[in-house]
Design a protein around this nucleic acid. Structure first.
Lengths: 130, 130
DNA sequence: TTAATAATAATAATAATTATCGTTAATATA
DNA sequence: TATATTAACGATAATTATTATTATTATTAA
């Protein structure tokens, strides 16, 4: 059991993620942090993001565009992904537990959580395209 | 518009996918097809899988383990992923349209589909671990 | 039967992520 | 406070999954 040591880089990554509502990739976070810490390494960003996920302080999303996205909001909610621009928006979620229980009856095993990705076209892209 | 030409490799990939209930990765399919066509290339497997997805004949899944998985069943259903062994099991799905509509009210844009991944531990792993 | 071209195998290239490793910095303890 | 321990760092190499390139082969239309 290695004990955690404070690092200003990790703190910066976490507060960056908390302050924004988009769901940035590791690379986008890297670009953002570099404004304050120009020497930070991309590896450091990845390592800390994964660490924060393990600690349950942030959430990792795989919406299907190849890159992992990160979400500072760990409360249960859903995501909407625009097929056009790839933006990710939060959706409120009701009855998370109930949905797990409904699915549970079909499974030999235990369900503890679920992630739902909704796909479509966001309002901005709809207005652009037309 | 390029017209499609028959290929025995594509046919083999498709029937392989139809015949199995696990949700193999491109690499797993590659290994399987190689028994019949030892010279097939991994690139061919990827190209045909993506083509079949475009044609709507198969489905691509990103359950979160890094690799894409493929599913020969395109009817609407959900998936359960075991955190231990990574196996993917099908779940029946009711009210797919209703769920989209429920989410729709929170979105500026249009929702046309959704994918839900349930996470937990499968029965086999539960019995092994204990 | 031949011409046109889609699909192939082999391989190179790319993108995202993880691992390695010598150095730096945070923290525990003497 | 000084020192020892070791987590975390930056730089970079390696890995993994996937896509692109290209010369050749196979399918299909004329």
């Amino acid at each position: 059991m290695k004990q955690l040591k404070y690092s200003r880089q990790r703190e910066s990554i976490k507060s960056c993620l908390m302050s924004r509502k988009d769901h940035p990739t590791a690379d986008a976070i890297y670009a953002s942090i570099r404004e304050e810490y120009p020497n930070i390494s991309l590896g450091t960003v990845y390592r800390n993001l994964n660490l924060l996920v393990e600690l349950g302080e942030i959430q990792k999303l795989r919406c299907g565009d190849g890159a992992d996205h990160f979400d500072g909001d760990t409360s249960p909610h859903h995501h909407f992904i625009c097929r056009e621009c790839g933006c990710i928006k939060d959706l409120p979620l009701s009855d998370s537990e109930k949905i797990n229980q409904m699915a549970q009856q079909y499974v030999d095993g235990t369900i503890d959580s679920h992630i739902t990705y909704f796909y479509g076209v966001c309002g901005d892209c709809l207005r652009k395209t037309s």
